[in-house]
Design a protein around this nucleic acid. Structure first.
Length: 490
RNA sequence: GGUCGGUUGGCCGAGUGGCUAGGCAGUGGUCUGCAAAACCAUCUACGGCGGUUCGAAUCCGCCACCGACCUCCA
């Protein structure tokens, strides 16, 4: 009877019933953005996926501590052979302080996440603010003998670790396969094995972002921040670790190895990975240069876009696919999502107008059970949305008088629809909010349309049509309804 | 090359061993001074070849194609 949330655990490759370590509390860690570029559609996917999880867990009554980091240090440039920090490189190009770049893109990220109605995490720690914790972790791993120092850099000894643990258990790899498939990278010659990874990296002379350490002036390794910060804020053992599928290997694999050495056990019980957004069947990503930024979506300023798409359209578009499936971008799909979203929002508006009847023509409890069943099955948002469209159909039928609910059932139905749409999927009516921003303008438009109604009553079609056409030319959408009119700003 | 995943109707996208996914588009209808919008109804499907089964798009095998990871990536 109680809600039983089942989530797909990447670690076991199975759907598992979710049980939190501490009753009624959930620790959730999600890999956040690297702030050296404008947020794009790919960033929206994990943010929205785990926002849904965050909201649903809270809805179920859990107290959730949601930690999502900001990576502002550390990652190596793929095409650069100097091992230069990404952020430092961008900073030099733009003649800015690295922290200025970080600040700018962090703000941009937050701005667009707000637009997408993504709830802020409980804690948003920065890698650069946790150098001490990361250095402690390096020392700990060194002391335990699972790392070695070479020319001021410290590397994790994968081979040694693999003797007692399975390095690759998350991503389904084994150490022998890795040997033959790793490429040449900077510092490869310093490492004992190509699959060893850096815990601390000595900074090249031109490197701006650097911190003192017992090993060298340098910066922490690529995967260390998440191990350090998750342990700091959620404990050595926590419930759920999330992130994009592209982080599964090596990033999360390395995290597991580091944390396992430091703490004696693996960090997270459940690992969740959202799939990628594709464009023409290919992953949308920075390295491929085929990404569309969120700003471009919202303004339509990209050649690939036929028009602008609102934040809620993007959110709905992403929620229309289950998080473990790829979503293929196309204008056709976006426009379909836009229309579907509008239909859902109109249904929600109509819900307010529904009057109770003497009996109930459909089963609210069964409908409710279907909604929860969808969410409980590994956050199956597309199924939930399909159910909600059934709800919309019922709303419209009730307005038309071909369906009805008793007062008690109607109250339950309204509560359910609102909590699903507004609280859990976090979709909101954009048209209503934009009109509400300017009361004076709204009143003027209402007056004009009232005059049009009068003209219609007098069969003065010329005046009626003129008012409609001119308002439309100004960018309004005018809709006649049975007993009046509706309008919105396009 | 290794590992993993996918292939559903015009498009997107769920799911399941036999019972309508849903949205968009299309078609028919209702409403309407006209138009738009809205609402109602409705058609087209499960990559190929074998196998298991009373029955498979759903399970198994093979093949084809696509993608992800193996390098920073959401």
């Amino acid at each position: 009877m109680e809600n039983t949330l089942v989530i797909y655990n990447s670690l076991t490759r199975k759907k598992e019933t979710f049980t939190s370590i501490h009753p009624k509390h959930v620790g959730l860690y999600v890999c956040g953005p690297t702030v050296y570029g404008d947020p794009h559609l790919g960033h929206a996917r994990p943010a929205i996926t785990f926002d849904l999880l965050f909201r649903y867990l809270e809805h179920l009554g859990y107290k959730v501590r949601y930690v999502r980091n900001i990576t502002d240090v550390g990652h190596l440039e793929a095409d650069a052979d100097d091992g230069e920090d990404k952020i430092a490189k961008k900073a030099r190009l733009e003649k800015l302080e690295p922290m200025e770049v970080v600040q700018y893109y962090s703000d941009r990220y937050h701005e667009f996440m707000d637009a997408l109605n993504v709830k802020k995490p409980s804690i948003e720690p920065r890698a650069s603010g946790h150098i001490i914790e990361q250095l402690q972790l390096v020392k700990d791993i060194l002391d335990k003998g699972y790392a070695y120092e070479c020319n001021g850099s410290v590397y994790f000894d994968v081979e040694k670790y693999n003797k007692e643990h399975h390095y690759g258990k998350l991503s389904g790899r084994n150490i022998d396969d890795l040997l033959s498939t790793t490429r040449d990278l900077d510092g490869q010659s310093e490492k004992k094995k190509s699959y060893d990874f850096a815990l601390w990296k000595k900074a090249a002379p031109e490197h701006i972002m650097r911190w003192p350490s017992p090993y060298s002036e340098g910066f922490p390794g690529w995967h260390l921040e998440c191990s350090a910060m998750s342990a700091k804020y959620l404990g050595e053992e926590f419930d759920i670790h999330g992130g994009g599928m592209d982080l599964l290997f090596p990033h999360h694999e390395c995290e597991i190895a580091q944390s396992t050495v430091a703490n004696g056990h693996a960090p997270a019980h459940y690992w969740m990975h959202n799939n990628m957004i594709t464009i023409n069947g290919q992953k949308m990503g920075k390295s491929l240069g085929n990404f569309i930024t969120l700003e471009e979506f919202f303004t339509g300023s990209n050649d690939l876009l036929e028009k602008a798409y609102s934040p809620m359209t993007i959110r709905f578009f992403i929620l229309q696919a289950q998080y473990r499936s790829t979503v293929d971008f196309s204008n056709e799909a976006l426009q379909a999502a836009e229309k579907g979203f509008t239909r859902l929002m109109e249904g929600m508006n109509n819900l307010e107008k529904v009057k109770p009847g003497d009996n109930s023509s459909f089963d609210v409890a069964a409908f409710k059970a279907k909604c929860y069943a969808a969410l409980n099955d590994d956050l199956n948002s597309p199924i939930l949305i399909a159910q909600l469209f059934d709800g919309v159909k019922q709303i419209n039928n009730m307005i038309a008088g071909t369906a009805n609910l008793t007062e008690e059932d109607l109250t339950a139905f309204k509560t359910l629809m609102r909590s699903m749409v507004e609280d859990i999927l976090a979709l909101k009516n954009e048209a209503a909010s934009s009109a509400g921003q300017n009361e004076l303008l709204g009143n003027v438009i209402d007056l004009m349309l009232q005059l049009r109604m009068d003209a219609k009553k007098n069969k003065d079609w010329a005046t009626a049509d003129r008012i409609r056409d001119e308002l439309q030319n100004m960018g309004l959408i005018i809709k006649d309804t049975k007993d009046g009119f509706e309008w919105e700003i396009k």
